[in-house]
Design a protein around this nucleic acid. Sequence first.
DNA 1: AAATGTTTGTTAATCCATTCACATAGTAGC
DNA 2: GCTACTATGTGAATGGATTAACAAACATTT
Lengths: 213, 213
Amino acid sequence: MLNARARVSKATVRRIPLYYRAVQQLQQQGVKRIRSERLSEIIHIPSATIRRDFSSFGELGKSGYGYSVDTLVDEFGKLLEVQDAENILLVGCGGLGAALIENNFRRNPDLNITMAFDIDPAKIGTEIGGVPVYDFRELAMRVTPDIKTAIIAVPSSAQPQVIPALEGIGIDAILTFAPQPVVCLPTTTIRYIDLTSELQSLLFTAHHQQLAD
Amino acid sequence: MLNARARVSKATVRRIPLYYRAVQQLQQQGVKRIRSERLSEIIHIPSATIRRDFSSFGELGKSGYGYSVDTLVDEFGKLLEVQDAENILLVGCGGLGAALIENNFRRNPDLNITMAFDIDPAKIGTEIGGVPVYDFRELAMRVTPDIKTAIIAVPSSAQPQVIPALEGIGIDAILTFAPQPVVCLPTTTIRYIDLTSELQSLLFTAHHQQLAD
DNA sequence: AAATGTTTGTTAATCCATTCACATAGTAGC
DNA sequence: GCTACTATGTGAATGGATTAACAAACATTT
Ligand SMILES: NC(=O)c1ccc[n+]([C@@H]2O[C@H](COP(=O)([O-])OP(=O)(O)OC[C@H]3O[C@@H](n4cnc5c(N)ncnc54)[C@H](O)[C@@H]3O)[C@@H](O)[C@H]2O)c1
Ligand SMILES: NC(=O)c1ccc[n+]([C@@H]2O[C@H](COP(=O)([O-])OP(=O)(O)OC[C@H]3O[C@@H](n4cnc5c(N)ncnc54)[C@H](O)[C@@H]3O)[C@@H](O)[C@H]2O)c1
């Protein structure tokens, strides 16, 4: 419910999805209560961090008892707004884009890629996993006003054209796999997934680890 | 060259690939020298952070001049060991795995996925983008001793079986797309790419941003 | 209902990273 | 060579996040 008194740190925000997934799994297993110490073993986050994170959303637990799994599922579900569907468009139906559409976050029924765009005539007019692929030049014509979120899987070189077009139709949240940094509107929230960098920095760490990581 | 005197922070390690890519691009454009202030504009990292990061690898720059682009390309290339090929195996040739193989980090000639594994009989024995797909049960038989790195793109439920098998054949660096956390050997460096969590935390930030991000 | 045990929520301490700001060391022009 | 700039590299200040540790709050047992 996001008690106004406590600020939620960026680091905490990145962990909310992990908490949500874990408590959902516990609920499915029929577990009714969980201690921070036990949850720590499951998700490998220190129990003190868990308690601090949880407390920034209100007093979710009870001393000497722990947390009710049902309450946690409820609270984190509310935080992530899983009750209302998030409709998403995807740009760039290459290998990666197609894989994302096929998967379509099926474990999370609230996350739906509902339409896709490309510029390749061979792809325009087709469907991938039931999702229609439109011509990117028809973006404004095809997009429905409920869509505020986009995933970008086009080559880096195409990204500088794609982002302003998306902002022009009201998109304000973007997840992109093209690492080329762009300037975007102050109202746009953008996140880069840079697979090459992740691999390179992983390798650097692995090659240079004298001590454990 | 990783002067022993200065410790390289984790945050810095994550930025090395960004620096490497940027200076490579500058080199290709024929740029000979670069100031931290100018580089900051390109990659959107504060100039003070850039200077501190660079200085942890030695005195790469010159006062009143800046940095030589050639020197930087050289130094970061050495840090990332781009001179010797890194051969990689991939497990799980579904949508995501196949996309990774097709792409095969082609912008980085040192990074090569050289073989793939699956358990689906329909995939075993085929090739994807020239990369052979073997039966995962033949892992030990097929793997070559030069391979120390793996990418995992199997369903989360299969991951607990896959990781010990990889460790058993000497893999010590793992990049995985299955978010299910696992216990692994202390000598294994593992990194999770959790696409669903990235999207969910992005949406949380976008929905709750009263101030800019 | 008292005693015992458990686990939270939070204060304080610590750690890690970023940012400021400038002495220093070099460049560039003359 | 001398002067006027310029930009690095780094101490010091700041800020953010993690971790330790414990009083207070509740559960459980007897
Ligand atoms: N797949 C990987 O392993 C991998 C690894 C690292 C980075 N990436 C990045 O992910 C992104 C996508 O990768 P991919 O392998 O799917 O690439 P891909 O080349 O297979 O697909 C790109 C798709 O984007 C389409 N496209 C190009 N310009 C467009 C435009 N202006 N508007 C709409 N569509 C356009 C193309 O027609 C193509 O279908 C790239 O930026 C790539 O750098 C991918
Ligand atoms: N694609 C996405 O958009 C997306 C989104 C979020 C998370 N993920 C995660 O990425 C991973 C891969 O996703 P995907 O869409 O490619 O899945 P997918 O189901 O298309 O492919 C999984 C592949 O793994 C193979 N496999 C299963 N068990 C195996 C085993 N024990 N050994 C070897 N191979 C095995 C299957 O035969 C299949 O080919 C999953 O963990 C998924 O949760 C994917």
